[in-house]
Every structure is written in structure tokens, then in C-alpha cells.
């Protein structure tokens, strides 16, 4: 690469890097620095080293149960979302008005404001007057408590996440499918491959890059889920939907304990980072060897 090329590269990357630095890296660095400070009182907040982290690890059962809930949420929601997105992409690829209408329909949930969506779901899942229970009643199923049950609340949040995100990630898979050269399919058809074989042997392997991106990005999304918890369950019942970001929010703005909040956010960031690296490595090993 010539020096002119590298200058051009820097120039093109600069706007994105500046925005990334300002809106992502700077806040992350600030939060890391703040996590090393003490409890906010009337006085300026003092440097306390790793005391906030020590508290989280050794004395804070609420944090650990929140970690468990978040892991459960992400581990279940992520693969279901990716599988649903991939399935939709297979079903809805191709040309034609009807298909493009259906694609739009599937994409729509991700275009709706998160809070509006959560409120509407809340109304539908209301245990006493909600639409969901009146449908179940017609089908002869007894009414369900949904968000007010420790056994069902997290499942409801997962369902909502899949509903909202599957259509969004479907678009990435569709774009990935578009980029697979037609010749590969033609050649395999000449060799007598069925469409099922084409899907397994050609489409999915060639979607490897898209797949690893979608997996990583979607898992990250799930780890930092906040709005549905805030609007629908407030972490309850009995902490069963108390995702990390909500606990961090509460710590900062309800318990006025920003040190604990920042320590939790920093640990979440670290966790997501490690998980992403592992996922990327696994995805490469699986699809590129």
C-alpha cells in the first residue's frame, strides 16, 4: 500500500473512528474510570481501587443472580433468533411482489420504537385483560400469568426479542445469499444436487461470514437488553428478569451508587468482548476449514 493509499484510508475511516471514539470508546473509558471510585455522597467521589469489583464478586448475590438471568436470556434468545432469521431468509428469498411484501412484514417489528413495542406487548400479555389470554381461552387453554410469573416472564422477554430481531437479521442473511454467485448453484444443479443439498452444502457454508457477524452482534444486543425489562417487568417477579443492564441502571439512578453500576457495565463489556472473540474463533473454525 502506498502512503497515498494509506492517507486516503485514514481519511475515509476518520469520520467513523471519530464517532466511534466519541460515542463508544470515550464513555466506556469513563465508565471504567468511574468504576474505581467510591460511593457518591455529598463529597467528591474518592478513588477506591477495586473495592466495587470486590463487592460484586464477594458480597453481592443480587449481581450474581442478575448475571445468571442475563446468561440464560442471551444463551436461549441468541440461537433461536439466528435460527429464525436464517429460516425466514430461506423462506422469503427470491423475487416477486408477494415475497417482498412478506419480507417487509417480517422486518417491520425492528423498525418499531422499542418502548412502543414493549408497551403494546405489555397490553397483550396482561394476565387479566390481555389479548393473549383471550385467544388462549378460545382455544380452551387456561389463562396464563405471563409477565407476572417467575417461570414465564423471562420466556416472554425472549419471545419478544426473537419477534423483534429475527426480521432484522433476516435482512443480513438475504444480503449474504444475494452475494453467493449464481454459477455455484448452476454447477451443483448440473451435478444433480437437490435444493436441500444446495442449502446445506452451498448456502449455509458460504454464509459463514454473515453468520459469524450476526451471531456476535445479536449476542451483544441480548447482553445489553434494557428497554423491555424497564417497561414490562422492572426486573421482577422476584428478580427473574433482572438483566444486568437494568440492575446497573437501578444501581446508578435508584440506589445512587454509580460505582457499582459502572463496575457492572465494565464487567458486562468485558464479558461480551470475551464471548465475541470466542464466537468469532468458533465460527471461523466451523465454517472456514
Amino acid at each position: 500500500m502506498t502512503s497515498r493509499d494509506s492517507k486516503a484510508a485514514v481519511a475515509f475511516l476518520a469520520p467513523a473512528l471519530i464517532l466511534l471514539g466519541f460515542f463508544r470508546l470515550w464513555p466506556a473509558a469513563r465508565s471504567l474510570a468511574e468504576s474505581l471510585r467510591g460511593w457518591s455522597g455529598a463529597e467528591a467521589r474518592a478513588f477506591v481501587g477495586l473495592a466495587n469489583y470486590r463487592y460484586l464478586f464477594q458480597e453481592d448475590p443480587v449481581f450474581w443472580s442478575s448475571v445468571q438471568v442475563t446468561l440464560k436470556y442471551a444463551v436461549i434468545a441468541s440461537p433461536i433468533t439466528v435460527a429464525a432469521a436464517l429460516g425466514l431468509a430461506f423462506l422469503l428469498r427470491g423475487k416477486g411482489r408477494r415475497l417482498s411484501f412478506l419480507r417487509t412484514l417480517c422486518f417491520l417489528p425492528s423498525a418499531v420504537s422499542l418502548s412502543v413495542m414493549a408497551v403494546v406487548w405489555g397490553l397483550m400479555l396482561d394476565p387479566y385483560y390481555g389479548l393473549a389470554n383471550s385467544i388462549l381461552k378460545r382455544l380452551g387453554v387456561p389463562p396464563q400469568p405471563f409477565l407476572s410469573s417467575t417461570n414465564q416472564a423471562l420466556a416472554c422477554l425472549i419471545l419478544i426479542a426473537v419477534w423483534r430481531n429475527a426480521g432484522y437479521w433476516m435482512m443480513f442473511f438475504l444480503a449474504g445469499m444475494e452475494s453467493i454467485p449464481k454459477e455455484v448453484y448452476e454447477a451443483s444443479a448440473l451435478d444433480g444436487a437437490s435444493s436441500q443439498q444446495q442449502a446445506w452444502r452451498i448456502t449455509i457454508p458460504l454464509l459463514a461470514r454473515t453468520m459469524s457477524f450476526v451471531l456476535v452482534a445479536n449476542t451483544t444486543f441480548n447482553f445489553v437488553t434494557f428497554a423491555p425489562v424497564f417497561i414490562l417487568t422492572r426486573g421482577g417477579p422476584i428478580g427473574s428478569t433482572n438483566l444486568l443492564m437494568y440492575e446497573a441502571y437501578k444501581s446508578a439512578f435508584v440506589y445512587l451508587d454509580p460505582g457499582r453500576a459502572m463496575a457492572m457495565s465494565s464487567l458486562t463489556l468485558l464479558g461480551v468482548l470475551i464471548l465475541s472473540i470466542v464466537q468469532l474463533k468458533l465460527a471461523r473454525a466451523r465454517f472456514e476449514c
Binding site: 448475590p61 407476572s148 417467575t150 426486573g235 421482577g236 417477579p237 422476584i238 440506589y255 445512587l256 451508587d257
Partner: peptide, 30 residues
């Protein structure tokens, strides 16, 4: 939050113990 948990069926003594611990951490700053 403790009373909300108790309402949903959590053990009252355990919920209040955990609440006391959490409140005291947050009151330390004062």
C-alpha cells in the same frame, strides 16, 4: 422490590434479610 418479591411468593425472612444488606450498602455513603 423486597415486598414485590414477597407478594410473588418469595420467602419473607430471606427477602427482608437481603433487602437489609442492600440498603445498608447504599446508606453507607451518608
Amino acid at each position: 422490590e423486597a415486598f414485590s418479591s414477597i407478594q410473588y411468593g418469595a420467602d419473607p425472612a430471606a427477602a427482608l434479610d437481603s433487602a437489609a444488606k442492600q440498603i445498608d450498602r447504599e446508606l453507607r455513603k451518608y
